[in-house]
Design a protein around this nucleic acid. Sequence first.
DNA 1: GCCAACGTTGGC
DNA 2: GCCAACGTTGGC
Length: 152
Amino acid sequence: MKYWIMKSEPSAYAFDDLVRDGRSLWTGVRNYQARNLMDEMKVGDLVLFYHSSCDPPGIAGLAKVSATAVADPTQFDPKSDYFEKRATKDVPVWRCVEVVPMKKAATLLPLETLRAEPALADMVLLQRGSRLSVQPVDKPAFDRIAKLATLK
DNA sequence: GCCAACGTTGGC
DNA sequence: GCCAACGTTGGC
């Protein structure tokens, strides 16, 4: 099993929205590296749900991959912000996994707290200029964060 | 609102 | 294939 972080702006889609919906396709990823990481995801992989571009940013909850990557339907919708004119049904460009909520963080675990943890210093999330919206997390880092946010 | 980081685009 | 210009991300 692998561990990941996926970022979302809570004003667009927050962890509570995932709880409400019960499951969600992770649509709208338009970065090849992030797409390729989603392609690696397997059912049962655990996902730290990160709230970005908010105050404070941080880990909001734990989710689980419930379906492997499929074509992102928003790329076919001309009215969508995520429309992709190069995409066809036969040859889609963008993909998305499906996730389900597991547990909401007791309180949002702020980025600042993660930065203060020496054991997490090597995390992709904490590197300068790390804008990737889907990131791998190693097990020790995942376990530390899960403990800090009481996610298990 | 600022700005550093970094991906993408497009002229050459 | 290079690289300048431009757009986006996202913390602060």
